[in-house]
């Protein structure tokens, strides 16, 4: 009979460890030297970070089953943030600065920074701050936010090819981490990281390959994350060793399937999340507290 030897694969490099937040509740993500859940052949010092998202503006058109847990707090981002931490056990939050969206209310960068500061002061968990997804506006908004929240080690997102320089400089000056976003392309991800690392500390960069929902492009995100992780770990490419973030709550809850039924919606989001963790995501931004709880039970 042939003898079985477990075909273990030891990897000699690590994904970088990134710290988000400050003080006792600061969270570390990344740091592993193996694939997700591969405790049998490597070390994964930090469980995936799980953030709940809140908006600075009352949400429109949210499906009833995802609005319901927050119904009493959506008009006030501070209350909303506190509920997520105190009631839903969120260890990290993502504040989305919808108020500044040029396609919407188009509030000023100063106002957005002010709201951010108020929320950041009200909770002690780490904070991701998400801009408007509009390159030029985000250059203003996120630099203002960086300044207003100096020293809080926020995670500022998203930085793209067209605006990374200004935002990253402000982040560096005021001690924040950043999210480098390049959509669905390993080469573009690498290019952006190389450009950033010319002046920005690599351990403060998180990669956003852009995520999509189950049934609506999930397979693209799944494969691009696996590919980036292979470049980082198996091929030891230093510019691909940053932790990976996935933001998909909004896309999930927009789907017909999630809106149709509460349990189906929670599973839609939770399965999307765990699939990305399996691919190698280190940080998820979630919308429904039940999806957060479920993923936490399974992976932490």
């Amino acid at each position: 009979m042939m003898k079985y030897e477990p075909p273990l694969e030891k990897i000699s490099v690590n994904i970088r460890e990134t710290v988000v937040g400050h003080g006792e509740k600061a969270l570390k993500i990344g740091g592993e030297n193996t694939l997700p859940f591969h405790f049998f052949e490597g070390s994964l010092p930090n469980p995936p970070g799980l953030a709940l998202e809140i908006l600075d503006t009352e949400p429109e058109n949210w499906a009833p089953s995802v609005l319901e847990p927050f119904e009493d707090v959506v008009s006030d981002p501070v209350k909303w943030a506190k509920k997520c931490v105190e009631v839903f056990g969120a260890e990290m939050l993502c504040l989305r600065l919808l108020s500044a969206d040029p396609m919407g209310k188009n509030g000023s960068a100063e106002e957005a920074a002010e709201i951010t500061k108020i929320v950041a002061d009200a909770v002690d968990v780490p904070l991701i701050v998400w801009g408007t997804d509009m390159e030029e506006k985000d250059a203003q908004v996120l630099t203002q936010v960086a300044r207003a929240c100096s020293g809080k080690n926020l995670l500022l997102a998203p930085l793209v090819k067209g605006n990374y320089e200004e935002i990253a400089k402000a982040a560096m000056e005021h001690g924040h981490a950043i999210v480098a976003q390049a959509s669905m392309d390993a080469n573009l991800t690498k290019e952006l990281n190389i450009a950033l690392c010319k002046f920005f500390p690599p351990e403060k960069i998180v990669i956003d390959p852009t995520a999509s929902a189950l049934g609506y492009g999930l397979e693209y995100t799944f494969s691009i994350i696996e590919e980036i992780k292979q470049f980082g770990l198996a091929d030891k490419d230093k510019m691909m060793q940053m932790p990976i973030l996935c933001d998909f709550g909004g896309d999930c809850w927009r789907t017909k399937e999630a809106k149709e039924n509460r349990e189906q919606g929670i599973l839609w989001e939770a399965i999307t999340g765990i699939t990305f963790i399996l691919a190698g995501a280190n940080l998820l931004i979630l919308r429904h507290p039940e999806a957060l709880k479920l993923i936490k039970e399974m992976v932490v």
Binding site: E219, E263, Q264, W268, T275
Partner: peptide, 18 residues
Amino acid sequence: AHFLLPLLVLRFNIFSDP
């Protein structure tokens, strides 16, 4: 059905040909 559909769709996605 509400538990099954997400699983079926996941299978469909992961096993689609890139």
